Every structure is written in C-alpha cells, then in structure tokens.
Simulated scan of single mutants.
Amino acid sequence: MLTSALLASLALAAGVKATVQGFDISHYQPNVDFAAAYNAGARFVIIKATEGTSYIDPSFSSHYTGATKAGLIRGGYHFAHPGETTGAAQADYFIAHGGGWTPDGITLPGMLDLESESNGECWGLSASAMVAWIRDFSDRYHERVGVYPMLYTNPSWWQTCTGNSNAFVNTNPLVLAHYSSSVGTIPGGWPYQTIWQNSDSYKYGGDSDIFNGSLDRLQALAKGS
C-alpha cells in the first residue's frame, strides 16, 4: 500500500493541482443537509439571493444560516436581468438582501450570474451594452463592499453576448459553467477559472462546483486577498 507521503509526492510529480469541492443552490433545493455535505468534503456553497430588483430567493436566509452552522465558506449570488434596470441598481439590491461581503474569511465575494432567460439570449443588449452593464454592476459592488464580484457564465453566452470581452480579466474571478470531464476552453481572456461548475447535479443538492486551488487559497478569496 502506498503511504500518504508517497501519494502526495506522486501527485506533485504528475502535476496534479489541489482543488476544493463546493456546490451552489437556490430555493429549488429547499432542504439541504449542509453537515453531510461538509463531512463528504465540501467546503463552500454559493446561495441564490436575488434577481433583478424585485425578487428575493425565499430559501436564502435559511440556506445561509444552515451553511454557516455547518462550517462552510458561503456567499450569495444574483441572477442578472441586464438592461431591465441599471447594473448599479441591481448591485445595490443584491447587497441589500444578503449579497454583501466582509473580510471575515468565511464569506465569498458575491457572484453575478450571467445567462439567458425568457426575454432573449442577451436580454436585448448589444455586446458593447452588455459589457457596459456588467461593468456598472461590478464597479458599484466594488465601490460598496471593497471587492469585485465573481462572474458566472458559460463560454457560449460570453462569446455571443459580450463578444468574448476580456474587460474583466484583471478584476473579476471567473466562475465557469461547463459540464464535462475537463474545463475546456476558457472564454474572455481569463488565464484560468477560479471556480468550475462541472455538473448540474450534486449529491447534497444543486450544482457541483470545484474551486481551482487549495483550501488556503479559497480562504484567501474569502478574505479578499
């Protein structure tokens, strides 16, 4: 039997990189066993908080409390409605209803969920207008809480709706949705993803998320460094 030290050495030699399991949830998963998820190795969860400027996820508060009690690093996400109101207005709404951040080491920067919905793939905006809207949200969030929000997207949406913009490479961590056995092509000029949503099914609820780094780096992200 290989010793743990030898396994670690072999992993290093093979270039295996440390990752941390996590998941994301909303009211579609009303009952989550956070303690069981933690015991199975999960260390973070991203919880839906808001949409637009008029919707609060009804499970956010109970989910946030449950995640905290279980010892998980947690944060909120906002489902963007670009163009319906300004990015700044939606950032303010998100912050006011649970999406804020403090450097306590257990709170992730808020995540802006960018994807299509019923009113069109790109919400009726041109690529330049979409980039401007995202920047408006991102800048207001940064101004209010001190860190830039993470941006959640998939390669197809980012290519179509922002023209594959690289405007956020140096400011916003990327949460990449790509359901496959590998990360694949990363859009927007980001050199790597911070979090990879690798599956729309996780044993303890919601989607599976993989942090690209070790636990201490995840903790550093929660501290804003």
Rank of each mutant, 00 (worst) to 15 (best):
R140S: 06
L112C: 13
V147M: 13
T102Q: 13
Y141W: 09
E117T: 04
M130C: 09
L114C: 15
E115H: 07
G146Y: 03
A127C: 03
T102F: 07
G105K: 06
A132M: 01
Y141L: 05
M111T: 15
S128M: 05
L125A: 02
G105C: 08
T153L: 04
S126P: 01
L114Y: 02
R140G: 09
L112P: 11
P103D: 03
R135L: 08
R140C: 08
S118T: 11
A132V: 00
P149W: 10
H142K: 15
E115Q: 09
M150N: 13
R144E: 09
V147K: 08
L112H: 13
T102D: 04
P103E: 10
L114I: 13
S128P: 01
G124C: 05
S116Q: 15
E115T: 07
M150I: 15
G110E: 08
M150E: 14
M150L: 15
D139N: 15
L151H: 12
S118N: 15
Y141E: 13
D104V: 01
L112K: 08
S116V: 07
V147Q: 12
R135A: 12
W123G: 06
D139R: 09
R140I: 01
D113Y: 00
M150V: 13
V145N: 01
M111I: 14
G105V: 06
Y148R: 13
A129M: 00
I106E: 11
I106F: 13
R140A: 02
S118W: 15
V145G: 05
S138N: 11
A129P: 00
S128E: 12
E117N: 11
T153I: 09
L108D: 11
G120D: 00
R135W: 12
T107P: 04
Y148E: 03
S118A: 15
A127V: 03
S126C: 05
R140L: 07
N119A: 10
C122W: 07
V131Q: 00
G105S: 12
V145E: 04
T107L: 09
G124Q: 01
M150S: 14
A132K: 05
G105P: 11
G105T: 05
G124D: 06
W123I: 00
V145I: 14
L108Y: 08
A127R: 00
C122H: 06
S126F: 06
S118H: 15
V147A: 02
G110M: 08
E115R: 07
D136W: 01
G124R: 04
T107W: 01
G124A: 01
A132P: 09
G124Y: 05
T107H: 14
W133C: 03
P149C: 10
L114Q: 03
P149E: 14
V147W: 07
A127I: 01
L151I: 15
S126N: 10
G146V: 10
V131C: 08
I106G: 10
D139E: 14
E117Q: 08
G110D: 09
S126M: 09
